[in-house]
Design a protein around this nucleic acid. Sequence first.
RNA 1: GCCCCAUCGUCUAGCGGCCUAGGACAUUGGCCUUUCACGCCAAAGGCACGGGUUCAAAUCCCGUUGGGGGCGCCA
Length: 486
Amino acid sequence: MSVRVRFAPSPTGFLHVGGARTALYNYLFAKKHDGVFVLRIEDTDIERSTKESENQLIEALTWLGLDWDEGPNVKGEYGPYRQSERTYIYKQMTEKLINEGKAYYSYVYPEELEEIKEKLAKEGKPPHYSYELLEPYNTEERKKEFEEKGLKPVVFFKMPRKPFSINDLIKGPVTFGEGAIGDFIIMRSNGLPTYNYAVVIDDMTMEITHVIRGDDHLSNTLRQVALYEAFGVKVPEFAHVSMILGPDGKKLSKRHGATSVEEFRNKGYLPEALVNYLALLGWSHPEGKEIMPLNEMIENFDLNRVNSSPAIFDNEKLKWMNGVYIRNANLDRIVKLSKPFILEKGLLTEEQFENNKKWVTEAVDIVRESVEDLSQIPDKLEIFLNDFEVELENEELKEFLDAEGVKNTIKLIHEKVLNDPDWKVETILKNIKEAMKEAKPKKKPFYMSLRKILTNSFEGPDLVKTIHLIGRTRVLQRLERVVAKW
RNA sequence: GCCCCAUCGUCUAGCGGCCUAGGACAUUGGCCUUUCACGCCAAAGGCACGGGUUCAAAUCCCGUUGGGGGCGCCA
């Protein structure tokens, strides 16, 4: 039987990095086994589910490159792929359970359920519902009342009082003792299924073979296994991936900074960097490789190598990895991806950007060496574009300028540039070398002075390349205003 | 009460002898460079604790402690 896995998010917000990792593991597992990856939207919570969230989810997944074989916008034989469109299936299945005496209707109100629970707690008994406890509410009056109010009775599943166990592909054997939980609701009074019920029906009817999901669902598995058994169907394999925690060891949340895929995208992270980082957060390559393309992850993916302990999200490592990817990526792509960041900062207009592609490309290329995300590119580009007041009073600069031969060399360079319209990296270098030969400055003070005068900074990329990028006109201006004072 | 987890600050390798515990990020030092960064080299840093089992334990078992999850007509 071929492998079928699914990623089943609820459309109630942005795609969280934890969800992204779960999706990734499902994807890798599917590809590794030539299986099918399905995307299912779990929107049975009508209060919180939104179409916008669903769109954002799809966009984030697409951006990450985790394409699915079946899903809401892709044809498939197991659809529909939105739970809200599958209500007829849940109804059918529920009738079956009721007819077989494995589930029952109840006309209780939520408040009454609370009361039962409180009463049990007071008596020191576990807060478990049962048919005996619920049956007294099924009076004829109550049924009429529900009908008048347009309410449907909730459906409870009769939880067998026996132990259940699974052999989790990541956690190993997990056993839930007898009577760990009581009967639970599978159909709500609004006619929609509850989570634990819908997943089982969907996974069952979609013939999902492996359920790879977050650790937080581990205890739900008990209910789900009981349901599979009630339907007399084979239980799928389970693999529970541990949670992603914040730096303080608590569940990763907004307090910890960026947590959604969209935020990382907006901050200038490359999708392949995020994917690579997420893959390593819990899984490891058999030979310890860290930077690797998706196909290599697929080739080597194995649930055996997924760690069962929770992982803390380490932004520093992600940044490093993103920097590596930015440096190794195709230059034209980086230029293209940097564009919005550059425009947003107001460094260039759309026209300037497009009309000076060659210049921009060259500039982005030398600047990408030192960034860890795309948003830092415009910051680094500033020295080539923005003008400034030279801080001639700067103590450090003064010292450098006063060193032997420095000012003379700069004057000579000014003259040479003035008389040489040719503006190539090689000629710039030639002019500098010649000036140095004539005036014989001390090297370091000279270079530092020149850099400071031209870029207003003592640090930055290769000076000659920088000079070339600043452009002849601007270089001349910047030299002139200094030389004029000597 | 129930379930899961526990190796450097962080992500991890390790699945009874190859461990004097390996790699990566971060940190520190050095090299490279006119400078910063990149890159390269090196250093520091860890098996939570206590009992067993075994000739031998980071690895297996039990307990303690610590962390996380769950106990919804949320997913």
